[in-house]
Design a protein around this nucleic acid. Structure first.
Lengths: 209, 209
DNA sequence: TTTGGATTATTAACGGTGTTAAGTATATTT
DNA sequence: AAATATACTTAACACCGTTAATAATCCAAA
């Protein structure tokens, strides 16, 4: 039955068209300009057709959020060449900050907006795989540090939560304009890196008894 | 001219009615159910009347966001009785977490949503006073700790940024359902407190050379 | 006291949003 | 060729923030 196969391919093709159009709107006009109607306009279908390929808007946003994680992974391409886990940890944090500030719309979707998580709730595989993988890499690196006595030993989950929260806190406060009014623009990124380095240096146990 | 006075009072009265109605909608039905039309319904005026008392919706949300800071201050009512600044710092962090998790809608408005900050941009007094005051108290307490050699000395701004970011990071990730999928519900709050305590204990210099 | 101007409020409308029910074409199978 | 399943569209629902034009009200001066 080649026909069924072809139909499935066509279905996937249109799904891709929808996601491509969403992406185009997203990167060119920002989050709030991604609307079902605009997507439909771009792919030259009626708005309701979109609903034949996606359950709702949240599901589309979930897919965009996944693309965000892909883009984030690119920032960490060279990260795994770093053998020293403590250096890697530092770089990981700086990359995270860098990614967030350079791609605020993606960051928003990945870590701030509720929409993608709401989509997750209605999906069959309802684990947040992307987040799990990303956090997993942080935990691994942290564990490596502990194994090599570079970081004071402790509960990896607690420490990972602290590190992630710290960088997420900074990036999200920056993105949502909470630092702008309190910290001078030019000092912001340096201060964020100082805070991160301070945390990691405090954890550092190399050269301590 | 008592008439002008009375008119001003009436104006303030309706402004208050609008804010009260917004608040009612906000606490009873959540952020996304605060709409100009619903506010107008509640106070039994037409939607456009609202615009005679507030520039736009952002300005209303800004006022709600201020009420959030008031509510937060209540959490810290007994905080200033604590003489030991390090203990105060701990309590301050726990209160922050507590407030955020118990009042997610307020927290959202105060530290996540862009709307209130956008209102600020169009205002004459365009400093984020509430945020400044709150951060100021953190810095003060931190400075007290350093003065009493309870915390390793360093740049207060950097350390304050780190502490605030850590707790904000945890609360906002929790509120936006990023922890739910990664941490068991019942472990969440304990883990958040552990992370905070770990950070503060790491900073603690009492009993160290 | 009546007229005129300012203030306050309303109606109607613009241009959007996500989403659903019902109907129409198209393509495939019987 | 007829019946059925698939793909798509039209029309509509129920909202949203906001503005322009209009009506009603109130106060002050003539």
């Amino acid at each position: 039955m080649g026909i069924v196969e072809r139909k499935e391919k066509q279905k996937l093709e249109i799904r891709k068209q929808i996601l491509d159009a969403s992406m185009k709107l997203f990167v060119e006009q920002g989050f709030e300009n991604v609307s079902i109607r605009k997507i439909a306009d771009l792919i030259e279908y009626s708005p309701t057709t979109v609903y034949l390929y996606f359950k709702d808007k949240n599901e589309i946003l979930f897919n965009l959020h996944e693309l965000g994680f892909q883009k984030m992974a690119e920032y960490n391409n060279t990260l795994w060449d770093i053998k020293n886990p403590l250096v890697r940890l530092h770089q990981m944090g700086e990359n995270y900050i860098q990614f967030g500030l350079q791609n605020p719309e993606f960051y928003d979707l990945m870590f701030i907006q509720s929409a993608p998580m709401e989509a997750l709730d209605t999906m069959v595989e309802c684990d947040w795989k992307s987040g799990d993988v990303a956090l997993g890499k942080l935990k691994e690196t942290l564990q490596d540090c502990m194994d090599m006595n570079m970081v004071v030993k402790g509960d990896v989950n607690v420490l990972a939560m602290a590190i992630w929260s710290l960088v997420h806190g900074m990036v999200s406060l920056a993105i949502r304009h909470r630092f702008e009014k309190l910290v001078e623009e030019k000092n912001m990124i340096p201060m964020m890196k100082l805070s991160l380095n301070w945390l990691l240096n405090t954890m550092d146990s190399t050269g301590k008894k």
